[in-house]
């Protein structure tokens, strides 16, 4: 389980039972114009340190599971451009078109689910990319006609799209 520490008051942390709830809002002072005492400066620095630790914990990705052997993200991007996936999706790395039918794929590597329904794992994604209606009959995304290798390349490209 990933440690998830929300310092601004969001959802309840899942694994940090020792944290007080709701978490205190962090007020970072010290912007020009604020008068900041030495003590509150130190407290602010400690808070920022804590926040940093939290972010680092978030940054640990289960990356090996998203590796696709033999697939090439560059080829994947070429396929994406050839098929014009951008007609429905805003895809980082594709200049035009940036469609809004199927939602942005920015940060796709960090998503838990494909189309909000299926676990975001390479073999599921590859199947999805080839024939979405086979998995989800109500979807608007049509079968793409990609072959297995092309779908794996596209998946490899999508897994380069993380939030950072």
């Amino acid at each position: 389980m990933r440690a998830h520490i929300d310092l601004t008051g969001g959802e309840r942390p899942s694994s940090a039972a020792q944290e007080p709830w709701p978490p205190r809002r962090v007020e970072v002072r010290g912007y020009p114009g604020n008068s900041v005492s030495g003590r509150s400066k130190a407290a602010g620095a400690a808070m920022i340190g804590l926040a940093g630790a939290g972010l680092l914990a978030c940054a640990e990705k289960p990356s090996p599971i998203r590796q696709i052997t033999g697939a090439d993200p560059k080829r994947g991007l070429a396929v994406i451009e050839q098929e014009a996936c951008g007609v429905c999706h805003d895809i980082p790395g594709v200049a035009w078109p940036k469609g809004q039918v199927g939602g942005s794929l920015a940060g796709f590597a960090d998503r838990a689910l494909i189309a909000g329904r299926f676990p975001n794992r390479p073999e599921v994604l590859t199947r999805w990319l080839r024939d979405p209606p086979a998995l989800s009959p109500a979807t608007a995304m049509p079968a793409t006609g990609l072959n297995e290798a092309q779908a794996r390349d596209v998946a490899a490209y999508l897994y380069t799209l993380d939030d950072r």
Binding site: V87, P97, A143
Partner: peptide
């Protein structure tokens, strides 16, 4: 402006104004 395939056709119908 777009290659002609089922995906681009669907996307065009749904929201050609975005393209």
């Amino acid at each position: 402006v777009l290659p002609n395939n089922t995906g681009t056709m669907a996307g065009w119908i749904a929201d050609s104004q975005a393209i």
